[in-house]
Design a binder for these strands. Structure first.
Lengths: 217, 217
DNA sequence: CGCCCTAATGGACGCTCGTCCATTAGAGAT
DNA sequence: ATCTCTAATGGACGAGCGTCCATTAGGGCG
């Protein structure tokens, strides 16, 4: 085995030599997600993961205690990555509620979040969530936090529009939008190349627009 | 092992004695689906399936040639069962396009089709479809046929409403509705008891109504 | 009643799974 | 240079996997 860098290093990331538990931990998680995306969670074995990571067999037990805990950690990491991108896009959208909703839609449909790797991993975890308690916790990707963000944005729009029954309108818009986004992920997974992001966004926008006359046009 | 019935039998279902390949085939498929629903596809092994079916080990190889082909047959059977119920409800709806659309929605959200067993199995197959070619063929439950049925109904409604750009309207309604239904299945799987069928139907109806002024009210 | 075809059985097989641990090796402290 | 602590290694292990086949048993027919 050859050392790669070796210099005293410039300052921040000084881990090019060998010993690096943290980096190996991350490498194992990434290898797990890559393997799941490639061959499915059923075929994802310890041997395949360590082969993908280029690390040794005992590493999984050393860093995670076992395969189950590694899968849980991978599910957690996957969920966090999703929210990292989404939160960034929401923040960039500013305060306008309509802009926030559109930012969520565009981000969720974007290549960065909705791609073959992600949709395969997401479906694999969803399927496994019935059995694996640890995965279940982290696999509700679009969870309460996103639901709240969307709901409060719709509440604001509903109030501005001066609707009577604000609560039902905002609630329906929230559930409807989340269901539409979930459905689009399934569509993407099923049809891949034939799936058009622009069409998907325009369909979602059109359906939401139907609830708020004069908005989302 | 004790024979159950034993009488010369009245006529139709005369298979209570012992030898009955067809019934065993079906029993294996049902046991496979039940096992997947109960413990997930990852944990579904030959041993678990034959235990669930109360049959002998060699049966799977005898009737299907192997576990993979059994899973494929189970996926096929699952898809057929879905369509059996759906087609029946569509037929009962008559010729009115709006009634057909509502029948599809109500059927898809009904206990008969959307229940814990079905949603778990469906997600398990979806996750496995990446790897298993055989499953992939049958796992697109809401496939071309349903898409066409819905599309032609929406086309008719759009024409009656005298919309200009009929093609885009019907297309958007079709994709939107299918995405909404997919999304509701995911919602049901995630929230189970807290999921309200009535609310789901009313949300879908409301969103679709937004596309067709004066309809779906 | 015996014949014979085939459904049905369940144990044995080779293999791969996840886990674990005795050992090796890296790097900071002395 | 040596010590020491811990990250890292990879082979060994028993358990459980899916497959297969020699054997048993059911039931229609001559």
């Amino acid at each position: 085995m050859v050392k790669s860098g070796g210099s005293p290093e410039n300052g921040d990331e000084r881990r090019t030599t060998k010993r690096d538990p943290e980096s190996n931990r991350r490498a194992l998680i990434m290898a797990t997600l890559d393997t799941i995306a490639e061959i499915g969670i059923t075929e994802t074995t310890v041997s395949k993961i360590i082969q993908q990571a280029g690390l040794s067999r005992g590493m999984i037990h050393l860093h995670f205690g076992g395969k189950t805990q590694l899968l849980t950690a991978a599910a957690k990491s996957f969920g966090e990555s999703y929210y990292e991108v989404l939160d960034q896009q929401i923040k960039a959208a500013g305060d306008d509620p309509e802009a926030i909703i559109m930012a969520v839609i565009r981000a969720d449909i974007s290549e960065a979040l909705m791609n073959m790797r992600s949709t395969r991993i997401w479906h694999a975890f969803r399927g496994a969530a019935n059995t694996n308690e640890g995965i279940a916790v982290y696999s509700s990707t679009r969870d309460k936090r996103l639901r709240d963000t969307i709901h409060s944005a719709f509440c604001q729009i509903a109030a501005e529009s001066g609707a009577d029954e604000n609560s039902t309108l905002a609630r329906d818009a929230t559930f409807g939008l989340l269901a539409l986004l979930e459905g689009m992920w399934v569509d993407y997974l099923s049809y891949g190349d034939a799936f058009s992001r622009e069409t998907a966004i325009s369909i979602i926008r059109r359906l939401i627009a139907g609830l708020f006359p004069g908005r989302f046009l």
